[in-house]
Design a protein around this nucleic acid. Sequence first.
RNA 1: CGGGGUGUAGCGCAGCCUGGUAGCGCGCUUGCUUUGGGAGCAAGAUGUCGAGAGUUCGAAUCCCUCCACCCCGACCA
Length: 567
Amino acid sequence: MRASRFFIATQKEAPAEAEIVSHKLMMRAGLIRRLAGGIYTWMPMGLRVLRKVETIVREEMNRAGAVELLMPAVQPFELWEESGRGPKYGPELLRFKDRHQRDFVIGPTHEEVITDVVRREVKSYKQLPRHFYQIQTKFRDEIRPRFGVMRGREFLMKDGYSFHSSYADLEREYRSLYETYTRIFTRLDLKFRAVAADTGSIGGTGSHEFHVLADSGEDAIAYCPDSDYAANVELAEALEPTGACAAATQPMQKIATPGKTKCEDIASLLSLPLQRIVKAIAVMRSEGGFALLLLRGDHDLNEVKAQKVIGEFRFAKDEEVEQALHCRPGYIGPVNQQAALFVDRSVAKMSDFVCGANEAGHHLTGVNWDRDLSMTTAVIADIRNVVAGDRSPDGKGCLELCRGIEVGHIFQLRTKYAEALKCQFIDEQGKEQVMEMGCYGIGVSRIVGAAIEQGNDDRGIVFPAAIAPFEVVIVPMGYNKIDAVRAAADKLLEDLQSRGIDAILDDRDERPGSMFADWELIGVPHRVVVGERGLKEGKLEYKGRLDSDVQMLPMADIADFMKLRIG
RNA sequence: CGGGGUGUAGCGCAGCCUGGUAGCGCGCUUGCUUUGGGAGCAAGAUGUCGAGAGUUCGAAUCCCUCCACCCCGACCA
């Protein structure tokens, strides 16, 4: 490739709307351009990266025995009614009508469509198992698209679906895809971690997420450095504190705490650690009305866990709190009131604690279970987020926290969709059975953002060689002026290409500084400079994107050298 | 959906408070010089000041409505 025929669209400044480093760099390097909120054009330079990611994913999926197909982006809404997922997916599902007033959606995912395909095509246990996948543009009408392609509304996804005659066979495929995903992210040269995950709206049991580790990630991951335990914080279990509840040593006392509505305020007022304060969170349950959730002051509510314990709920409005407890928010507590109590495990083991007095401007100190309030009707459960230092659920050490960008997700869907859509087969005994299903997703476009989030410096992107838009850039000093330079650069391009190396020759009439800056911004991993100075000694100049120094190499050796480097 | 913020040239921004000729830097065009780390000089082009309605002799500036975008939260892969 020659730069003069390609399209390079670098910019010195990123648009103000770009917040995180990968978004800024993708804009500056001319990889993407925004068309509308969360909707981007992949410019030629960016498309090369996207295609390289796609190729690795495709090769590994094929290797795992999955078969590629391509389903329509536009789907009839009836399928979503049939699966029962239409209402649940809600406004994120982009719906529209055709000229005959029939309802359609733009597919955010394809469980319904693939299940429809398989129920029509596959009738016998002899045709199972099957695994189909596609790499396709999806649309999800996100409430708040952000971070460029990391959370776009339109995005490229690899989605695969497997069908089985037994759960055991689904488990086998699930383990196999776990290995496949590990291979994919290893080949992409990303720092990643597989974590146990909540199954979310898609349902089913058994699920792992693959996260690229990055501080800007939207997900919190809990992991144990001393074992292989790792889970999304949404799911990670907070164990019961060890030891028994300490005996009461203080009487319960009401103290004035005017204006102190936050746990932190109370803690500093009383010179107590935050761990001695209990906060009460008021919620309205879909079934059963008002309830109080009790958490230690330094802990945060985990809504996913809480929902599993108490059912659907929302936070109570201020008026609802006043109505139920005759006290305004900020001073509410569990003592002397009738609301249903859901108590976090850690709170159940506390003694001599501080909580709201259900009287404006007052809190209670020295509160103890049994003596001051009953635990008999309370539900004790794990409803908080784990924090660093908590015991690992596998008992092998303590948890650490880090942040991740979810780039892959594998689910055991079991029979959820097969049942709803009557996707059945005839088994060896001639009996009709519902198929077991798995599904496996990779956010192809998100990977590009995640890779840049992980690989960048003050000069720009540092792409892993596997997905860089070009493997090598040839930068001549005076291509259009000096015949010897031109000849050497042209020959090098030919040599590299004949060895299957993806090289670009920057034959633009730019100044050296601009060319260097452009290619460092774009993140091409290898650079060869062709200059008159070196040519006099028959040498060219090599520099890796992260190298601090250049190497002078004999012209004759450079193609082999590059081949060795790139592998 | 709630709270906050921003919309002025392709990009980054000033001007707005206190109404009166629409500006700066980068980029772009042309010429000359320059040519190993984002060149210099000179000349030039580019605007529905987000949209609509209003106040006013006069609106980028004041008022109202709407739209878009960003951040925080809620929500969600």
